[in-house]
Design a protein around this nucleic acid. Sequence first.
DNA 1: ATTGACCTGTGTGCAGCTCACAGGTTTAGA
DNA 2: TCTAAACCTGTGAGCTGCACACAGGTCAAT
Lengths: 142, 142
Amino acid sequence: MRVRQLAEKLGVSADTVRYYTRIGLLAPTKSTANGYKFYNIREQSCLRFILSARDLGFSVEDITQIIAKADDGQSACPTVRRLIDKRLHETQQRYLDMLRLRKRMLAAVDSWDSKEDKAPTGNQICYLIEEFIEVEVGSETK
Amino acid sequence: MRVRQLAEKLGVSADTVRYYTRIGLLAPTKSTANGYKFYNIREQSCLRFILSARDLGFSVEDITQIIAKADDGQSACPTVRRLIDKRLHETQQRYLDMLRLRKRMLAAVDSWDSKEDKAPTGNQICYLIEEFIEVEVGSETK
DNA sequence: ATTGACCTGTGTGCAGCTCACAGGTTTAGA
DNA sequence: TCTAAACCTGTGAGCTGCACACAGGTCAAT
Ligand SMILES: [Zn+2]
Ligand SMILES: [Zn+2]
Ligand SMILES: [Zn+2]
Ligand SMILES: [Zn+2]
C-alpha cells in the first residue's frame, strides 16, 4: 500500500499520513527501487489507532507516548488515563473560553445593530470596537 | 517609550508588542543611536485598539485590514461588521466542537472507570481506546 | 574600568497539518 | 516503440499568534 491508498482507506489526506510518517508515528518500509514508502497491514492498524486517539482529544505527543509504551510491551492504560485527564481539563477550559468569547461577540453584534457607520477620527480607528469595550469593561465591575 | 514600558503599561508581554511591530501593526520610530524602537502616544493607542479587537475575536489579519481601512480615511465599520460575523460563525463552530469533544472524553473516562489495565497484544495498542471507539461508533447509528 | 543586572532586536520553535514544487511513474494513444 | 499527458511521490516551506533563546548593547553601582 502506498500513501494515498492508505489515506483514502481510512478517510484522511495523504499529507496527514505523510505527516505522521515524518514524525515517526508510522514507519513504512522504503522501497529500494523508487524511494516510495510502503505501508503494510500493521501500519494500517497503527494509523487506525492514531485516528481513534486523535478523536478522543489526545495530542500527537500523547499518542507518541502511548505507542512507545505499548511497543515496549508495557500497558499503556495508566498513561492513557493520566493523559486524558489533562486533556479533558484543557478542553473544558477551551470550551469555557469559546463560550465567553461567543457571548462577548454576540453582545457586540447586538449593540452594533443600532449604530451607524462612522468615519475614523484622529483618535479613533473604529468607534464600534473602542466604545463597545468601554461599555463592557464598565458593566463588568457592577 | 520603549517596548517593555509600552508592554507593561497595557498588560501584555514585550514579545507580543515586538510581534505586532514585526508584522507592521505598530510602526515605532527607530532610534538612530542604538537601533532601539521608540513608541509614542499614537502607537500606544493603536496597541490599545489592537488588544480590544483581539478580545472580540478578530484575527491579526482582520485587525490589519481594519486599521488599513481607517488609515485610508474610510470607515472601517462595514469591514468590522462583516468580519465579526465570520469569526462568530467560527467561534460557534469551535464551541460546538469543544462541547462534543468534551462529551466524548467524559464518556470515555466514565466507561474506563470500571475497566482494568491490560497489556498490549499483537493486535491492540491500548484496548481502552480501541474498544471505546467501537462502542461509540456503534451507538451513533441507533 | 569593571562588574552585574537589565534590556534590545533578530532568529527560531511550537501544533498539526496543508500547500507548493520538482521530478518520477503509469497509461493512453500514435 | 516513442511520446505526451495525467497522476503520484517525497521533501521543504508556510500557516497563527505568539514565546523562547541568544548574542550583544546599556546603565548604574562600584
Ligand atoms: Zn482531573
Ligand atoms: Zn468603525
Ligand atoms: Zn451570519
Ligand atoms: Zn491500554
